[in-house]
């Protein structure tokens, strides 16, 4: 089940500066339909910035992002979401005083563009899929951390996204929970959703990604299969320092 060769999301020369600081410089990337692409790199290497540029939270200073061949750079986040790209955040932001189901409903109605009745059906289907149906009527501020992580995914899925960007969706989970989370990601891929994953838990991201891109200081330093990346000297240098290279 290797990746098909259909490019769904593409970045050309994407740069983003904050004042004099280059958070991203001249990144090219391609995301193939149906694959799981892992992004790794030390803290502050530009992964989260790249996600923010893709979903429109910040504009690229230079370069362009194309989704299904259309230039989406500079569009507003809600527009990009409606087109089919969703993102889960590193810091979960549930609508705490709304129930779990209502959280997902907002995604289905607005991101997915469904009328309220169909949106409820979709919501129930997705809550069952991510195994949150038992807490659907609980206020989302009162559910556990793994449940909150799954709620973030559920909201993204409810928007009928074709591409989902996951920003450290496994942070704070124990090894068992990580295994469950990985199974869920595989199941999401089975639904035909393409995934781009930023993760610090190396074993997890290595195990699930078809391909990986490695960032350091806002630049792409390596790209390839997990094995190729793991053996790449510049990657080892970035992670472990010069003497190991």
């Amino acid at each position: 089940m290797g990746p098909e060769q259909n490019i769904i999301l593409e970045g050309r020369g994407v740069s983003r500066y904050f004042g004099a600081l280059a958070a991203l410089s001249g990144i090219d990337f391609s995301l193939y339909e149906g694959e799981i692409l892992g992004l790794i790199g030390p803290n502050g290497s530009g992964k989260t910035t790249l996600f923010n540029v893709i979903v429109g939270v910040c504009r690229p200073s230079e370069g362009k992002v194309f989704f299904e061949g259309r230039d989406i750079s500079g569009m507003s986040p809600h527009r990009i979401c409606q087109m089919g790209i969703a993102k889960t955040s590193q810091i979960v932001q549930p609508f705490t005083r709304m129930t779990v189901a209502e959280n997902v409903l907002v995604g289905a109605m607005y991101g997915g563009g469904l009328p309220q009745k169909e949106a409820w059906e979709k919501t129930r289907e997705i809550l069952a899929f991510v195994n949150l149906d038992k807490v659907m009527n609980t206020p989302s501020g009162k559910i556990s951390i793994p449940e909150r992580r799954r709620l973030e995914l559920a909201r993204a899925l409810a928007t009928s996204a074709k591409v989902i960007l996951l920003d450290e969706n496994m942070a704070g989970l124990n090894p068992n929970e990580i295994e469950e989370a990985l199974d869920l990601l595989r199941a999401i891929r089975e639904r035909g959703v393409t995934l781009m994953v930023v993760e610090h838990i190396m074993r997890a991201v290595m195990g699930i990604s078809d391909r990986m891109i490695v960032f350091n200081y806002g630049e792409k330093i390596a790209e390839g299969t997990p094995r190729e990346v793991a053996e790449n000297p510049s990657v080892i240098r970035a992670y472990l320092g010069d003497k190991y290279a």
Binding site: V55, V57, C81, A86, Q93, F95, V106, Y110
Partner: peptide, 11 residues
């Protein structure tokens, strides 16, 4: 509750 999150899921 969370305006940025709302924007990100299409609102």
């Amino acid at each position: 509750e969370a305006e940025d999150a709302a924007e990100l899921i299409g609102v």
